[in-house]
Each structure stands twice: as structure tokens, then as C-alpha cells.
């Protein structure tokens, strides 16, 4: 029963990810006085890509063809671990939050290798930039995670959220710092403005797109879908850890419906916030990104220290 529910939640997660991307696009278009595509546009794009012919670059090896499946598998597995609607699902115990970061790293590793595989300058450029940014973002991410883990006494996401819920509405300084730190890291890791622009194909500024430039057809569809799932995982992490109210503790129909409704509202609000910030900000230079991530790291460190000094006491 609980395993079936967990599978259903994963399916919901995977199926809902393009919707979130569509929603952001829609809000952004509205803010920029453009005509918005329907929120289902990402689904149409995916279907179109799945149907299109697959082209492979000349010099590519088996790794180039295997990478999309590895990336997609890792992302779906990561989605299975994150509590979306309900807590205490058995899949949450497969991996804790450190393993979750490991899944992201695995997907990124294969993405970067696939970029290097085709033997063009773009692939190498994208791989180099992506790995550089990731190597700065990952410690900041883990730092934020450690703050939460230390105050909740666990790295298991489901248990941590339950303990945060149990402690009631207290504004802890460590959580405030970690929240903002995690927000910045999420922007960098999911390749959003101001770190990267998913819509650009300008040679000088591409990061993520440069690696996937040679992908087409179903491979590209899988990679696009995986990055939408990744975006949704970050969004769910931020909302469900810092604002966990509404998430279902039991498996009753009412609780699950409430949980689904709550997470939808929270995600929609967060995505709207992101759309506003993307409208207001411009993409920054590549070499300003370390400062941006350094700031994120500092926030996470402050969160950790304020937890150790202010909240544990003694």
C-alpha cells in the first residue's frame, strides 16, 4: 500500500515537473507584457521532441547515448526520495539528503562527460563551466543541509520535516540564513537567471545549454525533462523544508488531498516569486558567479554557526 502510494507520488512528481516550468514561463510572460503560451506548452514540446528523429554527432561514443538515460534515471530516483505530498513514505528511506545531492552529482557527471564526448569546443566549455559552478554550489548546498540536519537531528528528509513540523512555528535564525542560502544555491544549480539562462544559445554565456547542444530527439527530451524534474525537486525541497505546513502525515484521502493542494499553492507562489526575480535581474558574468556562490556559502555558514552558537547553547 505505502509502496504503491510512493510510486504514485513519484509519478505525480515526474509528470508535474513540466507543468511547473510552464507556469513560470507564463508568469514571466505576463510580467514582461508578452503573450503567454499555455501552461501545457512544455508537455507539447516534450511530445514533439520524443517524436522527432534522433541525430547523433559523428564522433560520439556509447557514453553519449547512455547519458540521457542515466541522467533521467538519477533524477527520477531523486524525485522518489523527496516528500512531495505525504511524509513517512518508504521511498524516503532509500536515500537521505546527502545521497540526494549525490544523485544530482551523478547526473551532472554524466552530463558533463556527454558534453566532452562530441569533441567540440562547446561541449568542453559547457562541461568546464558546469563543473566549476557545481563545485562551488555543492558545498554551500551541503552546508545548508547540514544546518537543517543538525537542528532536526537527522539527514532523513521525511523525518526532518516531521520534526520541524513538530517544533511549531518558531523563527530560528539558522533557518532564515539557510533558507536564503539554499535559494541562491538552487538558482545556480538549476541554471536560472542570473547564473545561467536556460533560454540562451549565445556562445559566450551558455553553460548548461552548451553541453546539450548536440542532443536531439528523444535524448534531448529526456534531458529537458530531467532538468525540469531537478528544478521541481529544488522547489519542493525549499517549500517543504521551510514551510512544511499542510503536508500529509497519514495516508487518508483527505490528508493526501490537502497535502496535494498545499504543495500546489506553495510551488505556484515560489515559482511566481522566481519569475519576478528573473524579470528584474540580468544575467551576470561568468566570473561574478563565484562571488554569488561565495555569498550563498557565507549565508549557509552563518546559518550553521548561529545554530551551533545560539540554538544549542551551553
Amino acid at each position: 500500500m505505502s509502496w504503491a502510494l510512493a510510486l504514485m507520488q513519484t509519478a505525480l512528481f515526474v509528470a508535474g515537473a513540466p507543468l511547473l516550468a510552464g507556469w513560470i514561463k507564463r508568469v514571466k510572460c505576463r510580467l514582461q507584457n508578452r503573450r503567454a503560451p499555455p501552461v501545457t506548452q512544455p508537455y507539447r514540446d516534450l511530445v514533439r521532441l520524443f517524436r522527432k528523429e534522433l541525430l547523433l554527432p559523428e564522433e560520439s561514443s556509447w557514453l553519449f547515448r547512455a547519458a540521457p538515460y542515466v541522467i533521467f534515471g538519477a533524477m527520477v530516483l531523486a524525485a522518489a526520495v523527496v516528500p512531495l505530498v505525504a511524509l513517512r513514505l518508504p521511498t524516503a528511506e532509500i536515500a537521505d539528503v546527502i545521497v540526494l545531492v549525490g544523485f544530482f552529482a551523478l547526473a551532472r557527471f554524466f552530463q558533463a562527460l556527454a558534453g566532452m564526448d562530441i569533441g567540440t569546443a562547446f561541449g568542453g566549455m559547457g562541461a568546464s563551466r558546469e563543473m566549476t559552478i557545481a563545485s562551488l554550489a555543492e558545498p554551500a548546498l551541503l552546508m545548508a543541509v547540514f544546518t537543517l540536519a543538525m537542528s532536526a537531528g537527522t539527514t532523513d528528509l521525511s523525518v526532518a520535516i516531521e520534526r520541524i513540523l513538530g517544533s511549531g512555528l518558531v523563527i530560528r535564525p539558522s533557518f532564515v540564513f539557510a533558507f536564503f542560502g539554499l535559494l541562491l544555491v538552487a538558482i545556480a544549480e538549476t541554471g536560472r537567471i542570473p547564473v545561467d539562462n536556460p533560454a540562451t544559445h549565445l556562445e559566450l554565456t551558455m553553460i548548461h545549454e552548451a553541453m546539450v547542444l548536440e542532443y536531439s530527439g528523444r535524448h534531448l527530451a529526456l534531458i529537458e525533462w530531467a532538468s525540469q524534474i531537478k528544478f521541481m525537486i529544488y522547489a519542493v525541497l525549499i517549500t517543504n523544508i521551510f514551510l512544511p505546513w499542510g503536508i500529509a502525515m497519514g495516508f487518508g484521502a483527505g490528508a493526501l488531498a490537502l497535502g496535494a493542494a498545499a504543495v500546489t499553492v506553495k510551488l505556484a507562489a515560489l515559482a511566481a516569486l522566481l519569475a519576478v526575480s528573473e524579470t528584474l535581474l540580468a544575467k551576470m558574468r561568468l566570473f561574478s558567479v563565484p562571488q554569488f556562490l561565495g555569498f550563498a556559502y557565507l549565508l549557509c555558514l552563518l546559518g550553521m554557526l548561529s545554530h551551533v552558537i545560539l540554538e544549542v547553547g551551553g
Binding site: 534515471g73 538519477a74 527520477v76 530516483l77 532509500i94 536515500a95 537521505d96 546527502i98 537527522t154 532523513d156
Partner: peptide, 18 residues
Amino acid sequence: QTASYAAPLVLAGMFLFG
């Protein structure tokens, strides 16, 4: 309660989903 990691399931899950 503190942390768990099911490596065989991770491998199986990767193979399953991919």
C-alpha cells in the same frame, strides 16, 4: 531515524527508471 541509505535499491531504481 537519523539516516538511511539503501544502496541495492538505488542501483535497482537507476536501472528500473533509466
